[in-house]
Simulated assay, not measured.
Amino acid sequence: MGVITFDFEITSPIPLAKMFKAAILDADNLLPKVLPHAVKSIEVFEGDGGPGTIKLMTFGEGGPYKAAKHKVEALDKENFTYCYSIIEGEMLGTTFEKISYEVKITASPEGGSVLKSMSRYFTIGEVNITEEEIKAGKEKASAMVKAVEAYLVANPDAY
């Protein structure tokens, strides 16, 4: 088994606490609203939302995947960090054992926030991931953050 690691960072004008609450703590409700073409629903399958919780995410029509199970590995509301792993679903195929994400949101000097994410792909055997695949993954993550940001700008009293 190998591990392939990628880092991603995006800056937002949305303040730290508001971004964490919307993008992390309320993602189960917000992502299907702001990305209905990509995320159909996110439901708690087992647990209370904290570490050990299993969530089932179903994807929008026309995408390459139908669903994925996520396991919450860690949630630290005081330090604005969230870690989870994709543990089941078509996206793992026969290539990956799991895919883990560590997300940390920090305050930017301008009053907004900086979302930093580290992705770890736990491979089954030797795997080569192309620059195009890396770029596509980062574009999807950026689109998610920008969709949450657009919602918060349009709904300033939310969260």
Rank of each mutant, 00 (worst) to 15 (best):
I24F: 12
G62L: 09
P64I: 02
K116E: 06
N79I: 00
V148E: 10
A154M: 01
T106C: 03
V39T: 15
T5W: 00
E97S: 12
T106I: 02
F6Y: 15
F96N: 02
E139F: 12
F96E: 04
T81C: 12
N155P: 08
L92V: 09
G137C: 09
E73Y: 05
L56M: 11
T5G: 01
E132A: 13
C83V: 15
P109N: 14
A22W: 00
K138C: 03
P13L: 07
L152R: 01
E110G: 02
G89H: 10
E73F: 01
N79F: 00
Y151P: 05
K33R: 15
T53M: 05
S119A: 15
T58L: 03
S119H: 00
K146I: 11
V153T: 14
A67D: 13
V44F: 12
M118Y: 00
I129D: 03
F59I: 06
E102L: 12
P109C: 09
D26C: 14
F122S: 05
L115V: 14
V103T: 15
P15S: 08
I54D: 07
A147D: 03
K21F: 05
F45C: 09
S41R: 14
V148N: 04
A17V: 04
F45Q: 14
T58F: 00
K66T: 14
V127P: 10
E110L: 02
E133F: 01
Y101K: 08
E46D: 15
K140H: 13
I10G: 06
E132D: 14
K21V: 02
K33A: 04
L75N: 00
T106N: 11
M91K: 14
F122E: 11
P51Q: 07
S142F: 10
A150D: 15
P109L: 07
C83D: 13
I105C: 07
A38C: 12
K55E: 11
K55V: 06
F6T: 13
L16P: 01
M144D: 02
G50A: 04
S12F: 00
D26T: 12
E78K: 11
S142C: 07
E46L: 01
G125W: 07
D48R: 04
E110M: 05
K146M: 10
K98F: 07
T58R: 14
